[in-house]
Simulated assay, not measured.
Amino acid sequence: MSFVVVPASYVYLLRDGNDGTEVLLQLRQGTPYMDGHWAAAAAGHVERGETAYAAAQREATEELGITEVDLSFEFTMQRTQGGEPIDERVDFFFTARAWVGKPRIVEPDKAGELRWCPIAELPSPMVPHEAFALSQLGTSHRYLSHGFDTTGGQP
């Protein structure tokens, strides 16, 4: 049996709101994964020969129609689904507070809504590993794990 690790990049656009920091989220629809759940407004697989940083930039343009995204690396997450037969994942999480253009749904077949949400009051349901990631923003953690038999997601 071969072992496959699938890399992905996530972009959380952030802004200051009346109730603290807000994050732009999308409601997933028309996809085979977590339809009806809230998730990063821009995210996707890193393609062969592409860096995680370049993938984040590309996804922000493809999914939100924005460019020149001023990305800040937050952390990497290694995840699995606790014994289910899926490939393991390595996710790279970025935030941005500056970009060019107004974020909009570019792929309406994959996203039903975009919404600015206070990080302290995330909508439900959220994609579980992304809810965990958002709870770790602003911490000093640079490595997270999710879905393994560990406590607290840290090594």
Rank of each mutant, 00 (worst) to 15 (best):
R97T: 15
P85Q: 12
K102S: 15
R97K: 15
A96S: 10
V106N: 02
T95Y: 03
E107V: 14
E84W: 10
I105S: 07
E88H: 03
I86L: 06
I105A: 08
R79K: 12
F92D: 01
V90C: 10
R104D: 10
R104H: 13
I86G: 04
P103G: 01
F92T: 02
G83C: 06
G82I: 04
T80F: 08
T76V: 15
F75P: 05
A98D: 12
T76R: 13
V100L: 08
A96M: 03
V90E: 11
D91I: 05
G82D: 09
G101V: 06
F94V: 00
E107C: 10
R79L: 13
M77D: 01
R97W: 07
A98K: 14
V106P: 01
D91K: 14
R79W: 09
E88Y: 04
P103Y: 00
E74C: 02
F93T: 00
A98H: 14
F94A: 00
I105M: 09
T80N: 15
E88V: 04
G101R: 09
F92A: 02
I105N: 06
D87F: 10
F92L: 03
E107K: 13
E74D: 05
K102G: 11
A96G: 04
G83A: 14
T95R: 03
A96I: 02
V100C: 08
Q81T: 07
M77K: 01
Q78T: 13
T80Y: 09
P85F: 11
F94L: 00
P85I: 09
V100M: 10
T95C: 09
V100P: 01
R89Y: 13
V100D: 11
G82C: 07
E84N: 12
F93K: 00
E107N: 13
K102Y: 07
R104N: 10
F75Q: 11
V106H: 02
R89V: 06
D87P: 03
E88C: 03
F92S: 02
P85N: 13
G83T: 06
E74I: 01
P85M: 12
P85W: 11
W99Q: 10
T80P: 07
T95H: 06
F94Y: 05
F92G: 01
V106K: 03
E88K: 00
R89E: 10
F75I: 10
R97S: 12
T95N: 08
Q78K: 14
P103L: 00
T80R: 10
E74K: 00
R79T: 07
I86K: 05
V100I: 05
A96P: 01
I86S: 05
P85G: 06
T76H: 08
K102N: 14
I105C: 09
R104Q: 14
R79C: 04
